[in-house]
Design a protein around this nucleic acid. Structure first.
Lengths: 228, 228
DNA sequence: GCAAAAGTGTTAGCCATACACCCATGG
DNA sequence: CCATGGGTGTATGGCTAACACTTTTGC
């Protein structure tokens, strides 16, 4: 006896992306203004339907590429939302993904979508269950950021210690002590000082660091655990 | 302009359940022997297709009820698996759920499914990507167990300190020091000593405890954090 | 020379860990 | 009375958190 799949219902399945960026001061998310019904003109996450020939990961990457032109972005599946009435016009499941992008990269945001970076804290109400998706994504981001070096995805290649601290303060919405933060980071020994200075923020200038991924991987394979 | 959904492909979407139980010594999972093709006769997780009128949570609860007759079980969504060829005969997405059940409850396992409790460590190879699902579920269980009181879902209402320690040792696959474990649990002050003794395990007998959920909730709302 | 941000160490309290003996009881 | 598992306290080292002054340099 072979299973006859035709008796089972099929479903529309979409992906929605929570795209995080950091401008040096605030965490932001990239939102689009819907240019189609339902809820045309309202703010939402960027999403798209999953095609028959692609996985949800591929669909999320495609959606991200379509909007930003970026590839090889940090992207992680979060959760599948399946409430029957989560969209008013049809039963659509959606798998949420969150992405981390360096906001300074030359992003050519596709004009077609009226996308905007908005501060996470000041984000407008979103359609459907997209507010829940964002909330879940922030929780996941915090957890990942505290246990792994994903914060660097949000920074340019070279960054100051202050940038890094600002980033973590934005992610956790919490202030840290400068000396404790610096020595914790330094004690992990996963950054390299480029010996270049960023002279834009002060007269004295502040050193620029790079995340040393090779070193991090090596240390990790020897039992090291990132922890903030 | 309203979106025309008919142009988008629809998908079969299933749920698969990783059902954990604890027998006092070992963590177990409930597996079924497939009685239909493909891969008839091989071990797999218990699963089922999502119907048009139900959410994935409801489908998972239904699958669990069908197999065990149990309702109101701890159940949490894990991840959506969408590889095109994850099943050989059709493109089927699957949302995994993990469940925690008290193995001592009068479970009437539905004979129809040839289900068996097997020790997690000795689990056979499973079909499709079910091995990955189990691995992901164990990781999630460990995380949840270390930060919340979900372990009690796996124990009978009354349990000894030894039971509790055995449980956490099984979950984390790691031995703990008896005195440190006891004092950590006691310092959280979320158990009540029933002043009954379990006389089956020793001459002296060991006290039976209950998890005090009310107290836990109250403490939690005041900032308490469970931590093991 | 002064304003503004960068950089840098020490201390005290807390928590995690390591560790061993007496107790109660049934047989 | 003895064998078996149950129950209990202390000391140490490491980590976290609190805290303030000096340096550099452009203006």
């Amino acid at each position: 006896m072979t299973e006859d799949y035709s008796q089972y219902p099929k479903h529309l399945v979409a992906v929605d992306c929570i795209i995080f960026g950091f401008d040096g001061e605030n965490l932001k998310i990239l939102l689009v203004k819907r240019n189609f019904e339902p809820q045309m003109g309202e703010w939402s996450l960027m999403g798209g339907f999953i095609d028959s020939h692609e996985t949800s990961d591929e669909a999320a990457n495609r959606v991200l590429y379509t909007l930003t032109g970026l590839e090889n972005i940090y992207l992680e599946q979060l959760k599948c939302y399946t409430e029957i009435k989560r969209e008013p016009t049809a039963r659509i499941m959606s798998i949420s993904y969150y992405a981390l992008i360096n906001i300074e990269k030359n992003i050519q945001i596709n004009e077609q979508y009226s996308a905007e970076w908005v501060e996470l804290k000041k984000a407008p109400d979103l359609i459907f269950d997209h507010n829940d998706m964002v909330k879940d994504a922030v929780a996941r981001l915090r957890r990942r950021a505290s246990t792994g070096p994903i914060g660097f995805e949000l920074l340019p290649e070279k960054f100051t210690m202050k940038d890094l601290q600002n980033l973590y303060e934005a992610i956790f919405d919490e202030k840290f002590d400068k000396r404790n933060f610096t020595s914790k980071i330094n004690s992990m020994d996963i950054l390299v000082n480029t010996n270049e200075k960023d002279m834009t923020s002060s007269r004295k200038g502040s050193f620029l660091y790079r995340f040393d991924e090779k070193k991090y991987n090596k240390k990790t394979s020897q039992g090291f655990m990132f922890k903030i």
